[in-house]
Nucleic acid binder design. Structure first.
Lengths: 116, 116
DNA sequence: CAGAATCCGCTGCGATACTG
DNA sequence: CAGTATCGCAGCGGATTCTG
């Protein structure tokens, strides 16, 4: 009896900062490796690993074009597209509340650094 | 010049599997530490750390009751409630597609393990 | 261009034990 | 009950180099 992937693990995959940004980007149509590299910022290694993981889980469709300069495109699968809206909500939220969070942190740190 | 918290970092906080589960749970009203511990499964240490982080970022409101057996409740703040729906979408999705993902993985592994 | 491979430090995260 | 303290390791993730 093959074990089902626990929701836990699934969440982990789709919820990482990497996956979120990548999936959002790939939902607007196929996107190339290099484009992703510029958008996501981080090491090429991690980008590759995340991409592989998402492909393995059936969230991304990898297409290789056997052209002279190699060309590979990643596109979100239907299953992944179901998440698009929710993912956008998250990224949007993080932008909207960035400042509030910064303040909250400062406040928290001030309250905890000095033993009141 | 205080730096704003980059979206990247924000995503990281709200996007962890812990945070998601915790925030979802805390959105249905105040919830106690032990209840969370049962729900989330994982080490107590990580639960505590995640809780602290969320509190620091202003996503959770921590209330301590000075009763004989200590009692601490965590409640989602308005800012965190904005995420509730999106978070539910994610958890729901992970449950719905658990099986598809498992199959996708097996397929992928089969295609890659043996050099065809 | 799109990776694979190697090296390696940092820390995420679990297990366990102790406390107000 | 709701933590904190300590230990320890696996693996995340960055930097760099090599290739079809």
């Amino acid at each position: 009896m093959k074990d089902v992937v626990p929701p836990r693990e699934l969440l982990d995959r789709i919820a990482g900062k990497w996956a979120i940004e990548i999936l959002v980007a790939a939902s607007d149509g196929p996107i190339r490796f290099t484009e992703l590299e510029r958008l996501v910022e981080g090491s090429r290694r991690m980008l590759t690993m995340t991409l592989r993981g998402l492909e393995r889980d059936g969230l991304l469709q990898r297409t290789v074009y056997a052209t002279v300069p190699p060309k590979v495109e990643y596109a979100a699968t239907p299953m992944a597209l179901e998440l698009h809206e929710a993912l956008l909500t998250l990224t949007d939220w993080s932008v909207r509340h960035g400042e509030s969070v910064t303040k909250s942190r400062e406040s928290y740190d001030a309250r905890h650094a000095a033993a009141s």
